[in-house]
Simulated assay, not measured.
Amino acid sequence: MTQIESVWTRGAYLRTLTLSEDGKTRYALNQRSDNITRFYIDSSRKLRFSDDDTAMGVPSQMVIVP
Rank of each mutant, 00 (worst) to 15 (best):
T37K: 04
V63A: 09
W8Y: 12
S60Y: 05
G23L: 02
I36P: 01
E5S: 02
Q61N: 14
A12W: 02
D22W: 15
N30E: 13
R38L: 05
L19P: 08
L14I: 10
T25H: 00
G23P: 07
S33K: 02
P66H: 14
T16W: 09
D42G: 08
S20Y: 03
T9C: 03
R15I: 04
A55H: 14
I4Y: 06
L47R: 06
F49N: 03
M56K: 07
A28P: 01
I4H: 00
L14K: 07
Y27L: 07
T16E: 06
L17A: 06
T9M: 01
F39D: 00
D22G: 12
M56Y: 15
Q61V: 14
I41A: 08
S44V: 06
W8M: 10
K24P: 06
R45V: 11
D52Q: 06
L19S: 12
L29I: 02
K24Q: 02
I64C: 12
K24H: 09
G11P: 02
G23Y: 11
T54V: 14
S50H: 12
R38T: 15
Q61A: 07
Y27M: 05
R38F: 12
D34N: 11
S43E: 13
S20L: 10
Y40W: 11
M1W: 02
L14M: 03
L17P: 01
Q3P: 07
L17V: 07
D52A: 03
N30D: 13
T18L: 01
S6A: 01
W8R: 12
T9I: 02
A12S: 15
V7H: 10
R32M: 06
G11R: 09
K46S: 06
R26W: 13
V58R: 13
R26V: 00
I36H: 02
T37M: 01
P66E: 08
M62N: 02
D52T: 09
Q3W: 01
A28Q: 05
D53W: 11
M1A: 11
T37V: 01
V63L: 07
T25D: 02
V58I: 13
K24M: 08
V63E: 05
E5R: 09
G57D: 04
R38P: 06
I36W: 08
R48G: 04
R32Y: 03
M56I: 15
A55V: 10
S50C: 08
T25P: 04
S44L: 04
W8F: 13
G11L: 04
F39H: 05
M1I: 13
G57A: 06
T16S: 01
A55R: 12
K24N: 04
